[in-house]
Amino acid sequence: MRRSVRDNGLGLAFGGLFLASLIGQAFAGLAQFNEQQVVQGSEPVSLLDYLTSSSFAVDVVENWQSEYLQFFFYVFATVWLVQRGSPESKELDQAGTESDEDQRVGPHAQDDSPAWARVGGWRTLVFSRSLGLVMGVVFLLCWGVQSIAGWAAYNSEQLGQHQDPVRWTGYLAAPDFWNRTFQNWQSEMLAVGSMAVLSVYLRQRGSPESKPVGAAHDDTGQTG
């Protein structure tokens, strides 16, 4: 295998799985959309029409926002909260942002440390939180786009049913917006909590998401 492929196995594999799943969603979504069209006495639409519809957009992006919310929460929560026995947690006495020495910032930076870890001031402050910040910003953008695409899709459904369209602010208070939002949030929170708790007593040999198989159930913060 080429080295660049092997070096990027995780990123490439999940990128490929994402695209395959999105294609699956496109075809299944089109079929469901056209079922609805027939029920309403409207003409079925083409795949191109569906892929350029707000209905497709909101179905994709409502899932995106919850994933980034999940990682945003997880990245920040794991700074401050610990879980005894979990490889997802830090050791119990390390809760918090830790010392500059532990984090290799400013004068404690090493030769190969990123420049923004060394430089100090606002750049080190931002770089020190960049993973959570980007997850949080992408979440907010996705949620905003969900509200816009969901609003457009909602209004075209309203028109199909000879109902009045609503304003964007009206859509933000609509059950459709919050049902889409919460049904995605609940599953993410359950999955993250499960990962933190189930990994205390269960193992996956060779995975950095797990403790070593022989590690004690009480061992916290070990990966292997």
């Binding site: 070096d7 995106w64 816009i148």
Partner: peptide, 30 residues
């Protein structure tokens, strides 16, 4: 590290372009 950086940029671009596209569909009211 060149290929790793390229993948990093590809992921961020995918998210950004995807969001811009979906926002556009919503704003066009399609």
């Amino acid at each position: 590290m060149g290929s790793v950086r390229a993948l990093f940029v590809a992921y961020l671009s995918l998210i950004g372009l995807g969001l811009a596209y979906f926002a556009l569909l919503g704003l066009l009211g399609r």
